[in-house]
Simulated assay, not measured.
Amino acid sequence: MTTVKLHASTILTALGDAQSALVGKAVVLTDGKAGTVESIWLDELHGLRISIKGHDGKWPISTIKMQQGPESHGAL
């Protein structure tokens, strides 16, 4: 596998892991918004971004302050 394909595969694997860990989970963002994660996108300018059910917009994944369940102790 070429280096470029290996990097792409690593990125897509990490995106899939983040989706499995967060979609459908309740989160609280640093700005106080709370809700269930609907979707995760890979944004070429900002990295991983999430949408929260019931709120318009997309936020950087780094704005998650608290997450539902035992995964909240892990790093993303």
Rank of each mutant, 00 (worst) to 15 (best):
M1Y: 07
M1I: 01
M1S: 10
M1G: 14
M1W: 00
T3S: 14
T3Q: 11
K5W: 08
K5T: 04
K5D: 09
H7T: 15
A8C: 03
S9W: 09
S9M: 09
T10M: 13
I11S: 11
I11E: 14
L12G: 04
L12Q: 15
L12N: 13
T13I: 07
L15S: 02
G16H: 13
G16I: 04
G16W: 10
D17L: 13
D17K: 12
D17A: 13
Q19W: 00
Q19F: 01
S20V: 05
S20G: 10
A21M: 15
L22D: 00
L22A: 01
V23Y: 01
V23N: 03
G24F: 07
G24L: 02
G24W: 05
K25G: 00
K25A: 01
V27S: 04
V27G: 07
V28T: 14
V28R: 13
V28P: 01
V28Y: 08
L29G: 10
L29V: 12
T30M: 13
D31W: 07
G32T: 06
G32F: 08
G32E: 15
A34R: 06
A34W: 04
A34N: 08
G35N: 07
G35C: 15
G35V: 07
V37C: 06
V37D: 04
E38N: 11
S39H: 13
I40G: 11
I40S: 08
W41V: 11
W41R: 11
W41E: 10
L42S: 11
L42N: 09
D43H: 14
E44Q: 03
E44T: 02
E44S: 07
L45E: 07
H46K: 15
H46Y: 04
G47V: 01
G47Y: 01
G47F: 00
G47C: 08
L48I: 05
L48W: 12
L48A: 10
R49T: 06
R49L: 13
R49P: 05
R49C: 10
I50L: 15
S51H: 03
S51L: 00
S51R: 07
I52M: 04
I52P: 02
I52A: 06
I52R: 02
K53F: 02
G54C: 06
H55L: 06
H55F: 14
D56V: 15
D56T: 14
G57L: 02
G57T: 12
K58G: 00
K58W: 09
K58V: 09
W59S: 08
P60H: 08
P60D: 01
P60R: 10
P60N: 10
P60W: 03
P60G: 05
I61C: 02
I61A: 05
S62A: 12
S62D: 05
T63R: 13
I64T: 03
K65L: 09
K65C: 00
K65V: 00
M66C: 00
Q67F: 03
Q68Y: 03
Q68S: 15
Q68W: 08
G69V: 01
G69D: 06
G69Q: 06
P70M: 06
P70N: 07
E71T: 03
S72R: 11
S72Q: 13
G74M: 06
G74D: 11
G74E: 12
A75G: 12
A75S: 02
L76N: 08
L76H: 10
